[in-house]
C-alpha cells in the first residue's frame, strides 16, 4: 500500500505521486485565473474604499456649495480641489462616488445574503426531502418567476416609500429564485451519493447530514450565485434609484447620481458617464469573480 519509498532515487515525477490536497489545487487554479484575479482585486479595492470612505473622501459628500456648481473634473480643465468636479448642488463628485460605493456594496451584500438564505433553505430542503416539499418549493419558484422583478419592486417601493431598508428588503425577498433553483439541483445531485447514505447509516441527524455532508459539496455553486445576485441587486438598486423609487436624496447612490445628472446629460455628459462607468466596473468585477469562482471550484474529487 505504499505510495513511494524513500529508498528510491529522487525523481521529479515521483513528487506527483501524492496528489495535492483540494485546498492546494484550488490555490493553484486561482493563481492561474486572470478574470478571477482581476475581479477579486477590483472588488477588494472598492470594498476598501467603501469601508474607509470617511478617511478617503476629500470632502463631505453632503456639503453643498451653490457658488461652485457643475465644476468640471480635472481632465476637463477642472481644478484639483474637486478631482471629479461638483454636481448641480456643488457637492464634490468624487466624495459622493466614494460614499455611493458604500450604498451599492451594502445593498448588494445584504440583499444577496437575504435572498441567499431564503433560496438556499428552500432549494436544499426541496432537493433533500423531495416529494411534497419539493412540489411546494417548485410551485413557489414558479410563482416567483412569474413576477416581473422591476415592476413588483416599483410597486412595493411606491407603496411603502423609498428608503435604503425598503430597497434592501424588496430586493432580498425578490431575488431568491436563482438560489432556490441552483441549490435544489445541486442538492439533488449530491444527496444520492453514497457518502450521504453512509452518514445517514451512521445515525447522523438530518441537519448534520445537510450541513456537514451536503453543504460543503454545493458551497461552490452557492458562492457563484451569490456573486451573480449581488451584481443583479446592485444594478436593480441603480435602476430603482434612477427612477426615484430607491435610495432617496441626498444619500449618495450611483443610480441616483445618474438620475440627477440626466437633465444635464447633453451639456455635461461626465455627470452621467462617471457614475455609470463605476457601476459598470463594479458589476463587471463581481461577474468576473463569480465566473472565475465557478471555473476554479469545478467539481473535484472524482478524477
Amino acid at each position: 500500500m505504499t505510495h513511494s519509498s524513500s529508498a528510491l532515487p529522487p525523481d521529479p515525477l515521483l513528487q506527483e505521486t501524492l496528489a495535492p490536497t483540494p485546498a492546494e489545487r484550488l490555490r493553484r487554479r486561482v493563481a492561474g485565473h486572470k478574470g478571477l484575479l482581476f475581479g477579486g482585486v477590483v472588488l477588494g479595492l472598492l470594498t476598501i474604499v467603501a469601508l474607509f470612505a470617511p478617511l478617503i473622501a476629500p470632502h463631505d459628500p453632503y456639503a453643498q456649495n451653490l457658488m461652485g456648481r457643475m465644476q468640471p473634473p480635472v481632465f476637463l480643465d477642472g481644478t484639483w480641489e474637486h478631482i471629479l468636479g461638483t454636481d448641480h448642488l456643488g457637492r464634490d463628485y468624487l466624495s459622493r462616488l466614494i460614499y455611493g460605493a458604500r450604498i451599492s456594496l451594502l445593498i448588494g451584500t445584504v440583499a444577496a445574503l437575504i435572498s441567499g438564505t431564503i433560496g438556499t433553505i428552500l432549494g436544499v430542503s426541496a432537493g433533500y426531502f423531495g416529494g411534497r416539499v419539493d412540489a411546494v418549493v417548485t410551485f413557489l419558484i414558479n410563482v416567483r418567476l412569474a413576477l416581473p422583478v422591476v415592476l413588483v419592486a416599483l410597486a412595493v417601493v411606491a407603496l411603502l416609500g423609498g428608503s435604503l431598508t425598503v430597497v434592501i428588503c424588496v430586493l432580498g425577498f425578490l431575488l431568491w429564485d436563482r438560489f432556490a433553483v441552483v441549490m435544489r439541483t445541486s442538492t439533488l445531485q449530491v444527496r444520492n451519493r453514497d457518502y450521504v447514505t453512509a452518514a445517514q447509516a451512521i445515525g447522523g441527524s438530518t441537519p448534520r447530514v445537510i450541513l456537514s455532508e451536503i453543504m460543503p459539496n454545493i458551497l461552490n455553486n452557492l458562492i457563484v450565485v451569490i456573486t451573480l445576485e449581488m451584481a443583479h441587486a446592485i444594478l436593480l438598486e441603480a435602476v430603482l434609484s434612477f427612477l426615484g423609487l430607491g435610495v432617496q436624496p441626498p444619500t449618495p447612490s450611483w443610480g441616483l447620481m445618474v438620475a440627477e445628472g440626466k437633465n444635464m446629460m447633453l451639456f455635461e455628459p461626465w455627470l452621467v458617464l462617471i457614475p455609470g462607468a463605476v457601476l459598470f466596473v463594479l458589476v463587471l468585477a463581481i461577474n468576473l469573480l463569480g465566473d472565475g469562482l465557478r471555473d476554479v471550484t469545478a467539481p473535484e474529487g472524482r478524477n
Binding site: P22, D194, Y195, A199, P216, G301, R302
Partner: peptide
C-alpha cells in the same frame, strides 16, 4: 460499491 462516491470529497 463505489469508493469514489462513498467518501465525501471535501
Amino acid at each position: 460499491q463505489d469508493p469514489y462516491s462513498s467518501l465525501n470529497p471535501r
